[in-house]
Amino acid sequence: MNSAVNAFTKVVKSIYDFLCGDLAIFIATLVAFVVSGALVSIVQAPRIVAVIVFVGLTVSGLVLSLGRERNAGRN
């Protein structure tokens, strides 16, 4: 049972590493798509609002991730 769980975890980890391997970027990108999708489909927000939220959230993941590296380099 344990080996099956370990194998499953390894597979999930490999897929995650292949796709991105960075939690900040991964979560920010997914949140960007979910929130912007809701803005477009459910709230029917103006296009400019959806685009700003989408790009802003996407970029925030990159900035957050780089900020972490910047601090690691400083400490």
Binding site: C20, I25, T29, E69
Partner: peptide
């Protein structure tokens, strides 16, 4: 989604 993840990873 995939291209953004790949692109941001490489860009970083």
């Amino acid at each position: 989604v995939l291209l953004l993840l790949f692109g941001l990873k490489w860009l970083k």
